[in-house]
């Protein structure tokens, strides 16, 4: 009897958890797939009629608004950021993992502090710096800002991965006549591939999801990213929830699919180094 009660309690808990997690996502999906005539009516209907669901809003958004351009900007920024973060973090993670001595510790501490700094603080001074450098308005600004934000944590993750690769394997390669660079390239890097994948996924998600930097450094209108673009359908006079949710769906799908596909690597990468 007590066991049955515990089972029932657990089932209820899990159902509640699932509802809380998934309902907002469901509501976004259903709003994006319904016609405006249904979503703008009171009272809202929880379950859709099968006939009313269509891709009409999404195709209309792709045709009549700059949504595809936003998606392109988002993709460009995310890919460039990912490349930069992987390069910086892999090398630095290796150096921090293998080096001994004060300089390495100093850099490690600075990176640790940088990781925790409020990114909001960086927005204004970066805005001024980018203006002075004549970069303001271009996607490069968002890439650089995302790099500054993501590189410290990514370096921390990579250090954890290199720590788990015994230096003895590299030393064996050295004995076999490999140079230090060769040992890094042929031994350490291939072994760290799962870590590099996790870092790449982290960097891609951070930069794809960025709202703040794109909002501050890009001109807006047609020239911005999906996350900022989605908010542009909301005005004092009209809330175009269908279109908002259609763009929101586009912004979520890319990362959501990647997340579902690679979540195992990502999760193991994140939890490492936190023990």
């Amino acid at each position: 009897m007590r066991r049955l009660a515990r089972r029932a309690g657990m089932a209820m808990g899990i159902t509640l958890l699932l509802c809380l997690a998934l309902f907002p996502i469901y509501w976004m999906l259903i709003t994006a797939l319904r016609p405006k005539s249904v979503t703008m009516v009171w009272p809202p209907r929880l379950l859709p009629d099968p006939g009313e669901l269509s891709l009409a809003t999404i195709t209309a958004v792709a045709r009549d608004t700059p949504a595809l351009g936003w998606a392109w900007n988002s993709l460009l920024i995310a890919v460039l950021t990912t490349l930069a973060v992987v390069l910086v973090a892999t090398l630095a993670g290796y150096a921090l993992s293998r080096a001994q001595g004060g300089a390495a510790r100093g850099l490690g501490t600075v990176i640790l502090v940088a990781k925790m700094l409020p990114s909001t603080l960086l927005v204004v001074p970066l805005y001024v710096m980018f203006h002075r450098a004549g970069l303001l308005g271009g996607p490069l600004t968002v890439v650089l800002a995302n790099l500054a934000f993501a590189a410290p944590f990514a370096t921390w993750m990579m250090k954890g991965f290199f720590d788990s690769i015994p230096p003895m394997i590299e030393e064996a390669a050295l004995l076999d006549g490999c140079s230090h660079l060769g040992a890094l390239r042929r031994v350490a890097l291939p072994l760290a591939m799962p870590g590099i994948a996790a870092v790449a996924l982290y960097a891609f998600i951070v930069s794809w999801n960025d709202f703040l930097f794109a909002r501050a450094f890009l001109p807006g209108g047609a020239d911005t990213t999906l996350t900022v673009g989605a908010t542009q359908f909301l005005s004092e006079t009209e809330m175009e929830w269908n279109r908002v949710m259609a763009v929101a769906l586009l912004a979520t799908l890319a990362v959501g699919a990647l997340f579902l596909w690679l979540q195992r690597h990502f999760v193991s990468g994140l939890t490492r180094g936190h023990d």
């Binding site: 958890l17 907002p24 996502i25 509501w27 709202f211 996350t227 929101a248 979520t252 959501g256 979540q263």
Partner: peptide, 30 residues
């Protein structure tokens, strides 16, 4: 189930905020 429960993570913060905004809306909110 585990994957479904951590799915909100995959939604960009600003996009999630838009959805909650719609849910909490005074005219059409659920």
């Amino acid at each position: 189930v585990r994957l479904a429960v951590i799915l909100p993570w995959a939604v960009p913060a600003s996009i999630g905020s838009l959805v909650w905004m719609f849910l909490a809306d005074g005219h059409l909110g659920l």
